[in-house]
Simulated scan of single mutants.
Amino acid sequence: MATAQVKNDPWLMELLQKKASPLLKSVLDQPETYQYQLIYTEIKRDAHQKPHFMNHYLNVDRNRYFNPASTVKMPVAFAALEKLNRLGKKITVQTSMLTDSAFSGQTTVTSDTTAESGLPSMEHYIKKIFLVSDNDAYNRLYEFMGQKTLNEALWKKGYKDIRITRRFVPMTTEENRHTNPIRFLNNGQVIYAQPPAYSSLRFRFPPTKILVGKGHWDKNDNLINEPMDFTTHNNLPLEDGQQILRSILFPESVPSPQRFHLTADNYRMLYTFMSELPYESLFPAYDTTEFFDSYTKFFFFRAGRQKIPDYIRVFNKAGWSYGFLTDYCYVVDFKNKVEFMLSATLYVNKDGILNDNKYEYEETGYPFFREVGDIIYDHELNQKKAVIPDLEPWKFHYH
Rank of each mutant, 00 (worst) to 15 (best):
M1G: 12
T3W: 09
A4Q: 09
L15W: 00
A20V: 00
L24R: 00
L28A: 06
E32G: 15
Y34D: 00
I39M: 02
D46Y: 02
Q49W: 02
Q49T: 03
F53A: 10
M54G: 10
V60R: 01
D61Q: 15
N63A: 03
R64H: 09
A69H: 07
A69F: 10
T71R: 08
K73C: 05
M74T: 01
A77I: 11
F78L: 15
L84E: 01
A102R: 06
T107E: 11
T108N: 08
T110V: 15
M122L: 11
M122C: 05
Y125N: 14
I126S: 11
K128G: 05
F130D: 14
N135K: 14
N135S: 09
Y138M: 09
N139I: 03
N139S: 06
Y142C: 07
Y142T: 06
K148V: 07
A153K: 01
L154H: 02
R163D: 08
F168G: 03
E174Q: 11
G188R: 00
I191D: 07
L201F: 01
L201S: 05
G213K: 01
G215F: 08
D218P: 14
N222A: 13
P227K: 14
E239S: 13
I248N: 08
L249F: 03
F250R: 05
P255C: 09
Q258K: 13
Q258H: 02
F260I: 01
L262W: 09
D265K: 13
N266I: 02
N266W: 07
M274P: 03
S275T: 11
Y279Q: 14
T288I: 12
K297L: 05
F299L: 01
G304A: 10
I308P: 06
P309N: 13
Y311E: 09
V314F: 01
A318I: 06
F324Q: 05
T326L: 14
T326P: 12
Y328A: 06
Y330G: 00
D333Q: 08
K337I: 08
F340I: 08
M341H: 08
A344E: 03
L346P: 12
I353P: 03
N357C: 08
I375F: 02
I376L: 05
E380P: 00
K385C: 04
W394Y: 13
